[in-house]
Simulated assay, not measured.
Amino acid sequence: MSYPFELGGETLWDAGYHSGQLYASLARGAAEFLEMPSGLTPNRQGGCDVEPVSFQAFVEALYGIYSSTGNEVLHRLAQGLLVTSLVLLDRAEGAITLRPPHAAALLEEKAVLARAMA
């Protein structure tokens, strides 16, 4: 059983059911925390549709929290959600600007995770 993330009829990530549900739940919680939409909407197929403009804004805001905090716990909590979101954003043909202190590490983590999210 899967949990697909789709954009315009194209599957960006055919997540395992539990992985997809957990990611969508974490994104909903982060969006609530950030007081903005996540850009992910549950669909009839049992997954989520990705609205690219809102999703990109969500990922930018998530990166803002990640990159600006001195709180190690908040930084680490945001990291997993951020890296997964960067892979999904890349597949939706979106991008955000990563600043030098974080860019190399995040891009490396994104590449590793992208292979696992095939």
Score class of each variant (00 low, 15 high):
residue 23 Y to L: 15
residue 88 L to G: 01
residue 52 P to A: 12
residue 66 Y to G: 03
residue 26 L to N: 11
residue 72 E to A: 10
residue 53 V to S: 12
residue 22 L to S: 07
residue 3 Y to A: 05
residue 6 E to N: 09
residue 37 P to L: 11
residue 16 G to R: 11
residue 20 G to S: 03
residue 30 A to V: 04
residue 88 L to A: 01
residue 35 E to A: 14
residue 81 L to H: 02
residue 109 E to H: 06
residue 57 A to T: 13
residue 85 S to F: 05
residue 57 A to I: 05
residue 106 L to V: 01
residue 72 E to P: 01
residue 105 A to Q: 13
residue 72 E to G: 00
residue 68 S to R: 13
residue 67 S to R: 14
residue 32 E to R: 14
residue 63 Y to D: 14
residue 5 F to Q: 08
residue 46 G to R: 11
residue 3 Y to L: 06
residue 104 A to W: 03
residue 69 T to H: 00
residue 51 E to L: 12
residue 1 M to K: 12
residue 43 N to Q: 09
residue 52 P to K: 11
residue 68 S to Y: 01
residue 102 H to I: 03
residue 11 T to C: 08
residue 3 Y to R: 10
residue 71 N to P: 02
residue 103 A to E: 15
residue 88 L to D: 06
residue 20 G to Q: 03
residue 40 L to C: 02
residue 49 D to H: 07
residue 95 A to K: 14
residue 103 A to W: 00
residue 12 L to E: 05
residue 15 A to W: 01
residue 91 R to P: 03
residue 53 V to I: 14
residue 50 V to P: 02
residue 21 Q to H: 12
residue 65 I to N: 01
residue 108 E to I: 00
residue 4 P to S: 10
residue 95 A to C: 08
residue 63 Y to C: 08
residue 86 L to F: 08
residue 48 C to F: 14
residue 32 E to K: 14
residue 100 P to T: 04
residue 43 N to M: 08
residue 55 F to W: 08
residue 51 E to Y: 12
residue 52 P to F: 10
residue 1 M to Y: 13
residue 29 G to A: 13
residue 13 W to H: 12
residue 88 L to E: 07
residue 57 A to K: 15
residue 110 K to N: 00
residue 16 G to V: 00
residue 3 Y to F: 15
residue 25 S to T: 14
residue 96 I to Q: 11
residue 91 R to L: 03
residue 57 A to S: 14
residue 72 E to R: 11
residue 102 H to N: 12
residue 111 A to W: 03
residue 77 L to R: 09
residue 109 E to C: 01
residue 112 V to K: 00
residue 60 E to I: 01
residue 100 P to D: 08
residue 83 V to N: 02
residue 87 V to S: 02
residue 106 L to Q: 00
residue 27 A to R: 05
residue 33 F to W: 13
residue 31 A to P: 00
residue 82 L to F: 09
residue 94 G to N: 06
residue 29 G to Y: 13
residue 64 G to V: 07
residue 96 I to A: 11
residue 76 R to T: 10
residue 74 L to D: 07
residue 73 V to Y: 04
residue 4 P to W: 13
residue 30 A to N: 00
residue 58 F to M: 07
residue 36 M to Q: 15
residue 68 S to A: 10
residue 59 V to A: 03
residue 105 A to P: 01
residue 32 E to V: 07
residue 40 L to F: 04
residue 58 F to H: 04
residue 6 E to M: 11
residue 64 G to I: 12
residue 22 L to H: 09
residue 94 G to W: 09
residue 16 G to I: 00
residue 44 R to F: 08
residue 42 P to S: 06
residue 79 Q to D: 12
residue 104 A to E: 15
residue 31 A to L: 04
residue 98 L to A: 06
residue 24 A to E: 09
residue 31 A to C: 06
residue 66 Y to R: 06
residue 10 E to L: 06
residue 76 R to I: 05
residue 92 A to C: 05
residue 86 L to I: 08
